[in-house]
Amino acid sequence: MSFFKRSPSDSSSNYGGIPSKMPTPIRQRSPMPTKQFLSPPSVDPEPFYLLKDPPISGPGSEVTGETHMISHYGLEHSYNKFSTKKLKEQLSAFLPLLPGNIDTVSSQDNSSLQSVIEKPPITKEITTFTTGMLQGFKLHPGSIPDQYKLLHHQPAKKHKHKKHKRDHRIPELSEPMSAGAEAGGDNGHEKKHKKTKKHGDQDGEKKKRDKKKKKKKARQDPMHPGMPATHEGSGPGRP
């Protein structure tokens, strides 16, 4: 559909500013063989070239990016498994029965598969040891230093710290309290002050009452008529 070949009758007309005499495009061959052109025998396909066959839709047709590839190849189960389940990052989670610590970066101890692929250690045929060769494997009794006991070193399993329920509850309970105190911190202080003031006022009133009682008693007491009451001289209520 790239080019149109005009009929001679249209050459005089001007299509919206397009020059009426356009250079005739060089006819290019389609990469598709002409046999595959979809054209009914009754219709002349001459005006169109570089016309590819439309993709045949239906089962068995060419798979394009339009199709859902995961379902096309029947991988929904695997995809759902991997997308929903959280995988452990360590290699030991995939190979749990392998002895030793395998979760380390292999380049640290020169045990990488990359080095085996790039420089294969054995290029010749694998032959069995002769008696002379085994002489090189004679060992002295005793244990090796701890740093070489790699096979005994199992990866340390991470124990999940059990969280106590109380530990959760305390912050939950304390948070609103603290939040309330933060939100209306001044009010809280005021309340406390008011309480203390009230308490202080009550004490003062009691003291005043006691003083009045003592004064009355001192006045009424015939045994001690001239005995002044305590703090009498400084009392404000003295006439």
Partner: peptide
Amino acid sequence: VDQGKNPQLYTKDCMERAVAKNELV
């Protein structure tokens, strides 16, 4: 594998990349 990681993570990454590319196309 050489980095001590679970190879299933590679499968997961590949599938996720394939789905993203599929959606794009």
